[in-house]
Design a binder for these strands. Structure first.
Lengths: 202, 202, 202, 202
DNA sequence: AATGAATGAGCGTTCATTCAT
DNA sequence: CATGAATGAACGCTCATTCAT
């Protein structure tokens, strides 16, 4: 593994623990086992490293999304609900650090994310959300779905995919239980599909 | 307004902008218009102030939740879906700073939240989630709802309520539009109720 | 002596040794016997401290210059040559650190000096150079002086006053001698007056 | 141009901008278009490079000075004043970077200059200052000049030659004018000769 | 309750220099 | 000769916290 890769790996974890402001360059260097100056040699600044990571995460996410039929413009809603949420949930549940980084960035300073996303959405036109926007009016006209606002359909879907992973501690506290990780993910996938199919499909 | 209140008000905003690690005691004092030492006089430390605010937010949230039928042990699912999401959404959409603080805290360091929540759930037994847990098996047996896992029903509901408020920028970027705030909230309430009623009720 | 004054005193010496880039904030704090953070508390930055000192030096210099007939618009050239160079030379020979600071600043980055000077020359109109510019045409018409270009008269005078103090080491090296400080100053004053009187007056 | 020459050229400019402490090895390498390590390969250290440049400048200066009658032991003062200042002024006005480097070095740390000068004055005995020292007593006895102290005659001459080039910005600020470069040099030469002839010759 | 001054640990960053190839 | 990667000490500056009044 190159120094650069070691830095990125360590940085992902450090940023995931305290967000951008809480992350310490010293910690990253120590965990990566490289000289602190190398971080600036490769990434220019703490911010440069952070932006690099954001872009990298978004890039990986986009790759995953493409596999969910993002490329197929003729996809039907049932098939879409069968593939997209599952891929999405599995990606973030397998990369908790990514989830935390994106989550905090989203809340505190979406400008970085904005920039990273814009690059993708300007260079590619066959991604899920764009196809969704194009497909929904047709689905609605055909009587396949019960709502025709792409904005809120989209928000409902990603909220059900992402937020439960973040907020898993909540029911653990409230119901005073400990949720097994693997079973939790399978249950999330099942429950999400169920809710979306019953709630969205006609 | 007392100095203490002015500090809290300023601190809520400061913490909401950068999370706990990104907040600056100096900024809080300056915005509050009080001497920096007063913060330590009243709250002991930055962390003390933060915990005070977390507890205060949770307290306000609980008050709101109680109004959503939290107290009524015989509530029916349709009525519950009609009141709880709306109250929840309106509370956080009217307190964006609270939303950000709780959101980041949830992701980065849920221990504070845990503590604050535990206090409430230990002292009160008629709050929404507890009632939910008690009611759901009955609703399911009666054939009123399509799912019988309180954990995932609960997660689905709060995810649909909270996360869209955080992630509103997403569709704005992706669809390249600007969403009007008030209309957005009304649409969220409508879409959430619609999805939950169709998806959860039988 | 206040902390602020101690910082300024130490900083004058530190800047005089290495110029702005060579000066170390740590050294200033150590020599001043104050906490390093106090420098930023009082002056905001290393640059702020530097600019404060430049302005302070220029201010002191202006006070000295005013005593050299800078205020008298009817001064005659002989009297002027008798007072101005001597005051000028004595000021800088008694403040070697000032001389070094101003000298280096002048060579490397005159913008600070520019700013400090502009403030004085915009707020006061009876300073030496301005009076000089006004008086010289008259002196020349009256046949009192042999040159009528204020720019070069001014440059000749200040060059003879300042530069020898800087370049004193030169003859020491070249002629392999050691020049006594006090005698050197008295000789400088004498030689400067002599050259200017013979060379400039008619 | 060899790498070594490119380094020297870039270094001269870099040192002229910030003095020794303000110069950056990185900048020199970048401007020279060579790998940073080559600077250390050729010159051992930043200081080694600096000393090399100081010696090189002094060497060039000495060559110029020799042309000003430095070699002729029987030169007369009027002829000397006609040639030396002009050569001196033209050398530095055509090499502003040299002027700045020597100027700052002189003020902050004359030891390098000292060493470089010593080498020349130990190896050659017919340079201007030495001849000056030998000639002045004779000139004074013959009634050709009005002062007989070689130290101050020497200081007066080089001050009038060098300092105005450094301090050109001064009258520009004070008189609020912009001085044309070429005309400024010609005026300097004229004014310097005039002042020295009238002031020094009898 | 309130202030301005002070503290010390630590922050992100830069620097001249060296090393392996 | 030449390169890109690596090093460690230091740099200017900030931070939460404390102190004296």
């Amino acid at each position: 593994m190159t120094s650069k890769e070691k830095i990125v790996e360590a940085a992902v974890h450090e940023f995931s623990k305290g967000g951008y402001p809480g992350a310490r360059v010293d910690n990253i260097a120590k965990v990566a086992g490289v000289n602190k100056a190398m971080i600036f040699y490769y990434f220019g600044s703490k911010e440069g490293l952070y932006k690099f990571i954001i872009k990298s995460i978004i890039g990986q996410l986009m790759t995953v999304i493409k596999k969910s039929g993002g490329i197929d413009p003729d996809i039907k809603p049932e098939k879409f609900i069968d593939s997209f949420p599952e891929n999405y949930i599995r990606f973030f549940s397998g990369n908790r650090d990514y989830l935390r980084i994106i989550g905090v960035d989203l809340i505190l300073n979406p400008s970085n994310l904005k920039e990273a996303l814009s690059e993708f959405f300007n260079s590619e036109t066959q991604l899920v959300p764009q196809n969704l926007k194009r497909a929904i009016p047709g689905w609605y006209k055909e009587g396949l779905i019960s709502e025709n606002d792409p904005v809120h359909i989209f928000l409902n879907i990603i909220s059900l995919c992402i937020f439960p992973l973040i907020v898993k501690v909540f029911p653990e506290i409230i119901f005073n239980i400990k949720l097994d990780n693997e079973k939790f993910i399978e249950d999330r996938i099942r429950s999400t599909k169920n809710l979306l199919k019953r709630g969205l499909l006609k």
